[in-house]
């Protein structure tokens, strides 16, 4: 039995006077224990909304409807009440957000934010919690952790902030980590550090990781299974190597073709026989047409 089994997840946003938007439209995927699963797609394809729905972070009212199921052990993450969800969040399922500056509280020292998790789920307080927090910061590679605990988010660099956020996420050794674009806001050398850290954490602790990203390169280096999302649907799902070696869906082919690669020179993409003589670019942009539901959403491109 998989650790997380998402079936037919759909999320719609309704507003009075406007057409209903179906941001996620029947997404299904599963995550085995210790596995790294990638969700890739361009902006607007519904990858972040998927993660928010799984974490129960979408508002329950104001026209937001979440359908389908997400079985995590015996509990359905989409249907549990808020009280149980609070116990699960942070302890069993944790999340790493894209922008650490806006997901950390700017007026609270890092130490307090990390120990908050420890107090809520592991009952640690006082000096014990502080020691554990310092240990966590050390584990994610923050030098001089005892001093950093007293500092505020703005005093840390982008990479350090992301490390602090990861420390908070792994504080309770969750079974599942959801990372929503964890390295998008960072420079490449810092990105490499963070990815290496995530790889180590996953390997050492056996945590399963759902990696949400738009970067196919990140996926190629990290994920065991990859789901390609387009306009709210999974258009292709495959193991890492087959997906890149022989993409089956035209959108995946287009996406792979449009990425300028470090190991190909000026104008090389145009010469690549896989994409013919034409431009590798996918024309136009993602269109969400709520009323219109063609059998294949890529029809209009």
């Amino acid at each position: 039995m998989p650790l997380l089994d998402v079936k037919d997840l759909s999320v719609t946003f309704a507003r009075r006077g406007q057409r209903t938007v179906r941001a996620v439209d029947g997404v299904s995927f599963s995550v085995e224990a210790g596995e790294v699963v990638g969700l890739v797609g361009e902006s607007g394809c519904g990858k972040s909304v998927t993660s928010l729905a799984l974490m129960g972070l979408l508002p329950k009212q104001r026209g937001v409807t979440v359908g389908g199921s997400a079985m995590f052990g015996d509990t359905d993450l989409l249907k549990t009440d808020e009280r149980t969800m609070r116990d699960i969040r942070g302890r069993d399922v944790a999340m790493i957000f894209q922008d650490p500056l806006s997901s950390l509280n700017p007026v609270v020292p890092i130490g307090v934010q990390v120990t908050e998790v420890l107090a809520r789920h592991r009952g640690l307080t006082g000096a014990k919690a502080t020691a554990e927090a310092a240990d966590l910061l050390n584990r994610v590679g923050i030098p001089d952790p005892t001093r950093r605990l007293k500092e505020y988010p703005h005093q840390l660099s982008g990479g350090m902030r992301q490390r602090a956020l990861i420390a908070m996420a792994v504080a309770c050794a969750p079974k599942l980590l959801i990372a929503d674009e964890p390295t998008t806001a960072l420079d490449v050398t810092i990105q490499a550090q963070i990815l290496e850290l995530l790889r180590d954490l996953v390997r050492d602790s056996g945590t399963a990781l759902v990696m949400i990203t738009h970067d196919l390169g990140v996926v190629a280096g990290m994920c065991d299974t990859v789901n390609v999302l387009y306009a709210g649907r999974v258009v292709e799902s495959a193991r890492r190597k087959p997906l890149f070696a022989e993409p089956r869906h035209p959108y995946t082919t287009g996406l792979l073709g449009s990425v300028p690669r470090l190991d190909s020179g000026k104008g090389a993409a145009a010469r690549d026989p896989r994409f013919g003589a034409g431009r590798p670019a996918v024309a136009g942009r993602v269109r969400v047409r709520p009323a219109l539901r063609p059998p294949c959403r890529r029809l209009c491109r």
């Binding site: 810092i190 280096g221 890149f244």
Partner: peptide
């Protein structure tokens, strides 16, 4: 060298083989 080794390449074969030079700090 470090900069280049840090750029992810969308090809698992390349990703598995390449040498990674991680820079320390900021």
């Amino acid at each position: 060298r470090a900069l280049m080794s840090a750029v992810p390449v969308p090809d698992p074969e390349v990703e598995d083989r390449r040498e990674r030079i991680l820079l320390a700090g900021d």
